[in-house]
Design a protein around this nucleic acid. Structure first.
Length: 713
RNA sequence: GGGCGUUUAGCUCAGUGGUAGAGCGCUUCGUUCACAUCGAAGAGGUCGUUGGUUCAAAUCCAACAGCGCCCACCA
């Protein structure tokens, strides 16, 4: 053994050894309890960041622990096509070449993105291996795998025929730059100073920040309790510049203290106004199109960009004396989470999921404890979302994704929904000319089905219908055995996007929760607790750290110092400290291996001894084992890691080991035993160095691998 | 405007009723003996503030203050 542990010499070799032995691939074994984690699938074409490193470390610790405990343990890896993210990155590349998405037809564009993603295939997977992820590669799934798509279609079809999906002309959050709509969750809000214009509508004055939308006004609303307008209700107001009359109505949504207390109702371009419009049966006028350009306005504004039109309209209003007052207004506006540019609320026809019934069954499952959220603070947030989610817009106007299996009849305009098969005839009128909706699903719609989709896709059976209930057992192999999965461990920031939708769709499609435990994890911050971002220049590259200090060190450092559910701070100092610990373990072993082995093949229980130091370290080992086990069961990984660190370095190496130097031969069996047990306890946390030592021990312990040894009791 | 969380050693964080903890950093000394990616010793905190409950509070409760995050229909 070398004087210093050199991770570069061992990590790759050890990982291959595990793979060669099939250590990651569990068997469906009814005599054992399953333990399953479905890995949150990283983006297929992105390298991992340090947050992934923490997530991988967390899951791999749980996985290795359960595997050693004797569960049939499955960690299913996968990757996500990440619709919008990927198309966004790809379009940026196109722009660099002076091209845009509109230069290509749908299929060409799709194939180009497919090729682009394929070029990056394997990067993320290689990095997972470098991190030591003991996931079952034979079950790897991609969100665009044929079988996955088929399952997503089945879910959609069932939702449709159950009346839980409707195609609605509704106001959607549209980003003109992305060229697609979003759900409520993809909209961010930023604080902003804007001009608030008080406009003369003849009968009264209204205040607005968006004068370019006055042409889309269909009413003026005042609060029913607002006395100053009581006598105007039912009368008409006149839109400036075009002199179109609109009725004055009442609605309690109007804030009587804002502006003049009178609101111009523009259902075509404002979510609240849309709601008011629905209630009062108002018509909808659109004056901004999908490209963010003006339509249905007086000639001079037509096809101006909305922001330009605003200036022009203001100028004209000013000239004609319609602007009575201007104010600066500090407010928040919705922006695209990618571009940070304003979201344009526009009305369009899209597919929506009725969320309420699904939220109700999810709440019931939480209440019954079928699914538990480990940190109660997140349980509260989950309930907040379940109570506040609106109908979910799942249509995206992009090509990179799963195309919606909906065909519209050219004759009767009715929709035919299938589970992917191109229909020959319209279900309503039998007409033969049908046109498929060009839109794709929101990525979260497919990843919301990930736990059951990945397991079902492994099955040989594909001609089934949802829902699958408990009684359909003994058909689907993996799914029957591993579902519901044990732990789901994503970052807390995707709780509403992903976790809640998995619960909703899982319960809907399989009558069971997709996982029993939700263990949300925090974000990795830099050593000052500041959020990591490229612009701040505090990015920690996990692969660089692995090359420098070894995967064990990065893993250990990334879970060190804070609870799973909290944000953690990571610094190179910390990683280096863990590298030192790995070296400490290595050298303690090296010291122990200097003396010939006392008993080949290892120990199944503590050797007998009367020496008081021996007895003390055996007791300390027992206490540590119990404590670490208990902490792992409670997902308190940092405390478990810290307990082990203290035990091995202080109690074992510094205290006990020093004291054996004068009675080396006599103590050898205890040294071998405590090292053997320590390596097992440390293995989930630092798999490489511990396995490297195990392999170097030359049958001192036993002749198999550490990864497949059993957890100490 | 709501909600959630947080405030403990220089830094980053554990500790959830019983004499203040870890890592990193710092100081001093040591080290041909497994490891300088080492060892020994040490400095450093009235646990945000004020009240309350309790034999006992960093820990439970209330109020206040600072910080952070999330949500929201101020047009």
């Amino acid at each position: 053994m070398d004087k210093v542990y050199d991770h570069r010499k061992y990590e790759q070799k050890i990982y291959s050894l595990w793979e060669k032995n099939g250590a990651f691939t569990p068997k469906v074994d009814k005599s054992k309890n399953p333990f399953t984690i479905i890995m949150p699938p990283p983006n297929a074409n992105d390298p991992l960041h340090v947050g992934h490193a923490r997530e991988v470390a967390t899951q791999d610790i749980l996985i290795r622990y359960h595997r050693m405990k004797g569960n049939s343990t499955l960690w299913l890896p996968g990757s996500d096509h990440a619709g919008i993210e990927t198309q966004y990155v790809f379009e940026k590349k196109l722009r660099e070449k002076g091209k845009s998405r509109s230069d290509y037809d749908r299929d060409t564009l799709y194939n180009m993105i497919w090729d682009y993603v394929k070029d990056n295939t394997g990067v993320m997977e290689k990095q997972l291996r470098q991190l030591g992820a003991s996931c079952d590669w034979s079950r790897f799934k991609f969100t665009l795998d044929e079988k996955i798509i088929k399952i997503v279609y089945k879910t959609f079809k069932k939702l449709y025929y159950d009346g839980l999906i409707y195609r609605g002309e509704r106001i959607v959050n549209y980003c003109p730059l992305c060229g697609t709509s979003f759900s409520q969750l993809e909209v961010n809000y930023i604080e902003k100073e804007d001009e608030l214009y008080y406009l003369d509508y003849e009968t009264l004055t209204i205040a607005t920040t968006r004068p370019e939308t006055i042409f889309a006004d269909v009413a003026i609303a005042v609060n029913p309790k607002d006395n100053k307008y009581k006598k105007l209700v039912g009368k008409a107001a006149k839109i400036p510049l075009i002199n179109r009359e609109v009725p004055i109505i009442t609605d309690r949504l109007v804030d009587l203290n804002f502006g003049t207390g009178a609101l111009k109702v523009t259902p075509g371009h404002d979510p609240v106004d849309f709601e008011i419009g629905e209630k009062h049966n108002l018509s909808i006028i659109s004056v901004i199109d999908m490209e963010g350009k003006m339509i249905n306005t007086p000639e001079k504004y037509i096809s101006m960009k909305a922001s330009v039109a605003r200036e022009e309209v203001v100028k004209d209003l000013e000239e004609k004396g319609y602007i009575k007052k201007r104010e600066r207004l500090h407010h928040s506006v919705g922006v695209c989470y990618k571009h940070k540019t304003p979201i344009e609320p526009i009305v369009s026809k899209q597919w929506f999921i009725k969320v309420k019934p699904l939220a109700e069954i999810s709440k019931a499952a939480l209440k019954k404890g079928e699914v538990k959220i480990v940190a109660k603070k997140y349980d509260k947030i989950a309930h907040h979302w379940l109570n506040n989610l609106k109908d979910w817009n799942i249509s995206r106007q992009i090509v990179w994704g799963i195309r919606i299996p909906a065909w519209r009849c050219d004759k009767c305009l009715e929709w035919t929904i299938t589970d992917g098969v191109v229909p020959k005839n319209c279900v309503s009128c039998g007409h033969e000319k049908l046109i498929q909706d060009p839109d794709t699903f929101d990525t979260w719609f497919s990843s919301g089905q990930w736990p059951y989709a990945t397991l079902l896709a492994q099955s040989r059976i594909s001609n089934f219908q949802f829902p699958i209930s408990k009684n359909d057992k003994a058909k689907f192999e993996d799914f029957d055995y591993f579902y519901p999965t044990s732990v789901m461990n994503p970052a807390y920031d995707i709780l509403p996007f992903w976790v809640i939708r998995m619960i909703m769709l899982g319960l809907y499609a399989t009558t069971r929760v997709p996982f029993k435990i939700v263990l949300l994890h925090g974000l990795v911050r830099d050593r000052f607790g500041v959020k990591i971002s490229k612009s701040k220049g505090n990015v920690i590259n996990p692969i660089e750290m692995i090359n420098k200090y070894g995967a064990d060190s990065l893993r250990m450092a990334s879970i060190w110092g804070s609870l799973v559910e909290n944000d953690s701070s990571l610094s190179e100092d910390n990683i280096r400290g863990q590298r030192n610990f790995a070296n400490k373990i290595w050298n303690a072993a090296r010291f122990i291996f200097l003396e010939s082995v006392a008993k080949r093949g290892g120990y199944s229980k503590a050797p007998t001894t009367k020496n008081s130091y021996d007895l003390k370290i055996i007791k300390q080992l027992r206490v540590t084992t119990k404590k670490v086990t208990r902490l792992l069961e409670k997902y308190r990984l940092n405390e478990a890691a810290e307990t082990l660190y203290d035990f091995f370095w202080n109690q074992f190496a510094n205290d006990y080991l020093e004291k054996t130097k004068s009675r080396r031969k006599d103590a050898q069996k205890i040294l071998d035993f405590v090292l053997q047990e320590s390596l097992k306890l440390l293995h989930p946390f630092m798999p490489f160095v511990t396995e490297a030592i195990w392999q170097e021990s030359k049958n001192r312990f036993n002749n198999t691998t550490l990864i497949s040894s059993s957890w100490p009791k």
